[in-house]
Design a protein around this nucleic acid. Structure first.
Length: 586
RNA sequence: CGGGGUGUAGCGCAGCCUGGUUAGCGCACUGCGUUUGGGACGCAGGGGCCGGCGGUUCAAAUCCGCCCACCCCGACCA
């Protein structure tokens, strides 16, 4: 590509609304342009890198038996009504009517379409196992797009789906993905870890998330030196052992204008850990066809944070939202001064963290504005319907496996794998006839990688103060050829020769000063730079520089193509050497 | 959805508080000339419904109201 002909330009300054380095660089270097919140155009450079990433995705999916298909981005709503997700998912799914007034949806994901294919095309166990995948646009009207391509509303995803006749088959395909995903990220030179994850709205039994560890990540992970690692949504931890203490009599104390745990601890001069915190949430349950809301009253130790994912799983709700003050008052509780003692238990589901029964003499609300109770004791003063772990793990909490303090780190979820089971094939009738003559639902797995998020994560990992430093595997070009004054003719000839040798070359033939060309080369970040100038030609040479290194090297003009091929091979071999077997961890 | 912030040329910004010539600066862009190994210089240019609507006023980028868009934190999220 001759730069003088390329659509798009580099920017000296990044737009003010780009905060994350990788976002700034992708915009400045001319890879992406924003169209709206969470909606981006891929420019020629961004497109080339994306194609590189997608090629890797295809190769690795094909390698484990994937068959590429292409499913639509617009779906009839009927499919989503069949699995219930039409009702379950809120604003995040965009809906519209076609000209006949039929409900349509923009695809957020494709489980329903796959299940529909299953019921149309799979009849026998002889047709299993199978694996299909596609690369397709997804639309999720996310409440908060952010950080460039890291979190967008419209994005391209590689999603694959496995179809099996039994759990063993699913496990086999799941493990194949587990390894293939590491291979994919390694080929992109992106370091990731796989962590246990909540199955969330996908349902199913087991899930891993592939996390790129970085402060710009939006998920929090808990990591232990012993190897335990999990998303905070589900991370376990070892609860502290409280000191034994005799239960004392309940005592009502006036606590005027003390409505928070902080204020309460200060007012009574006690640690927050000696208080019980009450949190109210409205939970939605499906009963028959209707949704029913019920107030969940959760109690955790005052210094700990409620984990809504754990709570949601504990009460088996499909949705949780903060309760309004009126809803809290309706059950006889007073926000800020609430406790389970003396509450109308008919109307609520009381859930107590499993640490609470071991904690004697906690301070809790009196359900009366301005008053708290000292020395409340679980079992004597109240009992809960559910006792479960409903607290979020934090930095420094003890590892559930080894008991040592854990570290909290942020991460970007660049991929995930799910054992879905029969959650989609049962409601949609995706059955097959098994060897034993019985009809059974096909067992599914679902596996996703967002290509844009992956591209930006690579940039976040590989950059310096001058710009991007692409790994050669996903670089938009292999070689950035800089032609300076006096070297135009030789550069143009070299450009043709390099391309003829199979190299992808970005040739800066613009009428610009050397400074501008070098700055742009650094910004765009192509791994191998070759400069041809009057100065170099006087010595009969060209100048090589790797983007990631500072030193330059003179190479005889006639050896330039060979040298470029050699560098490319070396860099590719380096990347390839990182692709290794990763032990599978549940 | 809650909190905070920003909308003035392609990008970065000043002007607004205290209303009043033709709305300004840097980069980018066009032409000419000089320059040429790390974002050059001179001269001459082009480009703006000052986010939108409404109001106050003789007069609004500037004051007031409503709306919209975008960004950040949180909530949410396969």
């Amino acid at each position: 590509m001759r730069m003088s002909q390329m659509f798009g330009q580099t920017l000296r300054e990044a737009p003010a609304d780009a905060e994350v380095v990788s976002h700034q660089l992708l915009v400045r270097a001319g890879f992406i342009r924003q169209l709206g919140a969470g909606i981006y155009t891929l420019m020629p450079l961004g497109m080339r890198t994306t194609v590189k990433v997608e090629t890797i995705l295809r190769e690795e999916m094909n390698r484990i038996g994937g068959q590429e298909i292409f499913m639509p981005v617009v779906h009839p709503a009927e499919l989503w009504k069949e699995t219930g997700r039409w009702y379950k998912i809120g604003d995040e799914m965009s809906r519209f009517h076609d000209k006949n007034g039929r409900d349509m949806v923009l695809a957020m994901t494709h489980e329903e379409v796959v299940a529909d294919l299953v019921r149309k095309d799979i009849q026998s166990y002889r047709q299993l196992p199978r694996m299909v995948y596609h690369l397709q646009t997804k639309w999720r009207d996310d409440p908060r797009p952010r950080a460039g391509l890291i979190r967008v509303r419209e994005f391209t995803m590689k999603d694959s789906y496995t179809l099996d006749k039994d759990e063993e088959g699913l496990d086999k395909q799941y493990r194949a993905h587990y390894q293939a995903y590491f291979d994919i990220f390694n080929r992109c030179s992106l370091p990731v870890i796989a962590v246990g994850a909540d199955v969330g709205m996908m349902g199913g039994s087991l899930a891993h998330e592939y996390m790129y560890l970085t402060p710009i990540g939006e998920d929090t992970l808990l990591l232990s030196d012993c190897g335990y690692k999990a998303n905070r949504q589900i991370a376990l931890f070892k609860k502290p052992e409280p000191e034994a203490e005799d239960a004392l009599d309940v005592e009502k104390v006036a606590t005027p204008d003390v409505a928070t745990i902080e204020a309460l601890a200060e007012f009574l001069d006690i640690p927050k850990s000696r208080t019980a915190k009450a949190v109210f949430l409205m939970a939605t349950f499906s009963e028959e066809k209707k949704d029913v809301e019920k107030l969940v009253f959760a109690v955790v130790r005052g210094d700990m944070d409620l984990n809504e994912t754990k709570l949601m799983n504990a009460v088996k709700a499909k949705e949780l939202r903060p309760a309004h003050d009126e809803e809290i008052a309706d059950v006889g509780a007073v926000a800020g001064y609430a406790s389970p003692i003396g509450i109308n238990k008919e109307k609520i589901i009381l859930v107590v963290d499993d640490l609470i029964p071991n904690l004697p003499n906690l301070v809790a609300g009196a359900n009366e504005a301005g008053f708290h109770l000292r020395n409340t004791n679980y079992g004597r003063d109240y009992e809960a319907e559910i006792v479960a772990d409903i607290v979020s793990a934090e930095e420094g909490y003890l590892c559930p496996k080894c008991g040592e303090p854990m570290q909290a780190q942020r991460g970007v979820e660049v991929g995930n794998i799910f054992k879905l089971g029969t959650d989609f094939t049962v409601p949609m009738g995706g059955n097959f006839l098994d060897e034993d003559g019985k009809e059974k639902p096909v067992i599914m797995g679902s596996y996703g990688i967002g290509s844009g998020r992956l591209v930006q994560s690579v940039v976040e990992e590989h950059n310096d103060e001058n710009g991007i430093i692409w790994p050669i595997s996903v670089a938009p070009y292999h070689v950035h050829l800089v032609g300076l004054r006096g070297g135009e003719e030789a550069a143009a000839k070299l450009y043709d020769e390099l391309e003829a040798a199979g190299l992808e070359v970005l040739y800066d033939d613009r009428d610009e000063s050397p400074g501008v060309k070098f700055k742009d080369a650094d910004l765009i970040g192509v791994p191998i730079r070759i400069t041809v100038s009057k100065r170099s030609l006087e010595e009969g040479s060209t100048e090589f520089k790797l983007r990631r290194e500072d030193d330059r090297q003179k190479v005889a003009l006639e050896d330039t193509v060979a040298k470029a091929l050699e560098y490319k091979a070396t860099l590719e071999a380096e990347v390839a050497s990182t692709v290794v077997e990763i032990p599978y961890e549940d």
